[in-house]
């Protein structure tokens, strides 16, 4: 049996990245993810890997671009305002098909907002986020264990699709400590026959997203769109709890899903038939399972720490026939089991 240990959420992302063979980290301090950067500043150089604290989140994401283009597994981490700054670089990487991992430990916006945890970047993360037609697989951990596991998965999926991949967690999860099972390091990394690592004994390679001739650009986009369609078919992940007889389904991710789990358990003790659908990938979104639940006549409670951003995806999946209620907080305020339980009580 593997060793259990206590670990902070942000640290678990860092350690997950190290286990996944992350060879370089570039980052800029921003609360609430500073411990991730600080942890990398010690761990990576000690392993002979690259750590660099950059002059800005802009520089960080573009260093990730440069490093990733050479075939190195690499990442940056940031929080919401910094993530906004990184959209241009992420768009370039999506366009140039350069894989990387970006961890966004969300805080409350808009603007400077608040350092409290939040889920207000849902739209930004699941709709591409920057300019142009692109999507990113977005993984939403709900525990410290998943901070590690999904970070490792993020590196795998980034390479599989040659696309930036997001780990999207709220600041509360990032700051929390839980016990986890340590994972084994990834033994071998996939070969990258596209990387620019010096044109020794071969034709030169080019990594870019620019087409001088406008006729060529739609072709490139079509290839990208096919890739996103494959993600939708192959990469949907979710956890369902007590869904079989559920008359009410709570849909929640991240730390809100943890509050939802407590509310669900309390509701079950009160004989309410409540289940939980927790998206693990928010892009691609588990639309089919929600649509199937809607067919069975379930009512839905969407619990999230934003103005109701995931609510839109749930509405698209469920349609207009079923009752959908939003329970939410925003502005850096945690969502409590009480609030969700109250909604269950009202809906029952």
């Amino acid at each position: 049996m593997s060793e259990r240990t206590l670990m902070g959420g942000n640290i678990a992302i860092a350690e997950g990245a190290i286990l996944a063979g992350c060879g370089a980290y570039f980052g800029y301090p921003i609360t609430p993810q500073n411990d991730l950067l600080e942890h990398m500043s010690v761990r990576l150089p000690a392993m002979g890997r690259v750590f660099l604290q950059t002059e800005s989140e802009l520089a960080a994401i573009n260093m990730v671009y440069g490093a990733a283009a050479t075939g190195v597994r690499c990442m940056t981490s940031t929080s919401s305002p910094g993530f906004s700054l990184q959209q241009e670089g992420i768009s370039y990487m999506a366009g140039a098909e350069v894989p990387c991992v970006v961890a966004n430990i969300m805080r409350a916006g808009p603007g400077l907002g608040n350092i409290g945890g939040a889920q207000g970047d849902y739209m930004q993360c699941t709709r591409g986020g920057g300019h142009g037609d692109y999507y990113l697989i977005t993984l939403a951990p709900a525990s410290v264990q998943e901070m590690m596991d999904l970070t490792m998965l993020a590196f795998e999926l980034a390479d599989k699709y040659r696309n930036p991949t997001l780990v999207m967690a709220d600041g509360f999860l990032g700051q929390s400590v839980e016990s986890i099972v340590m994972r084994e390091p990834v033994k071998s990394l996939p070969p990258k026959d596209w990387a620019i690592d010096g044109a020794r004994g071969r034709d030169r390679r080019l990594i870019n997203s620019f087409e001088m001739n406008p006729i060529d650009h739609p072709k490139r986009i079509r290839l990208l769109l096919e890739k996103y369609e494959r993600m939708r078919l192959e990469e949907v992940r979710y956890e369902g709890m007590l869904l079989d007889d559920a008359e009410i389904v709570i849909v929640a991710y991240g730390s809100a899903a943890r509050a939802a789990m407590t509310a669900m358990n309390r509701a079950r003790k009160n004989n309410f038939k409540v289940g939980l659908l927790r998206p693990i990938t928010v892009f691609p979104f588990p639309s089919q399972v929600l649509s199937d639940l809607a067919e069975k006549g379930s009512k839905f409670i969407v619990a999230e720490m934003s103005s109701g951003q995931m609510l839109e995806d749930v509405r698209i999946s469920v349609g207009n026939q079923n009752e959908i209620k939003l329970v939410n907080t925003y502005g850096g305020v945690p969502l409590t089991p009480d609030m969700i339980f109250e909604a269950i009580d009202l809906m029952s």
């Binding site: 929390s176 943890r258 509050a259 789990m261 509310a263």
Partner: peptide, 8 residues
């Protein structure tokens, strides 16, 4: 298994 990490 622990649910809510926030306690009300």
């Amino acid at each position: 298994r622990i649910g809510s990490i926030f306690i009300s």
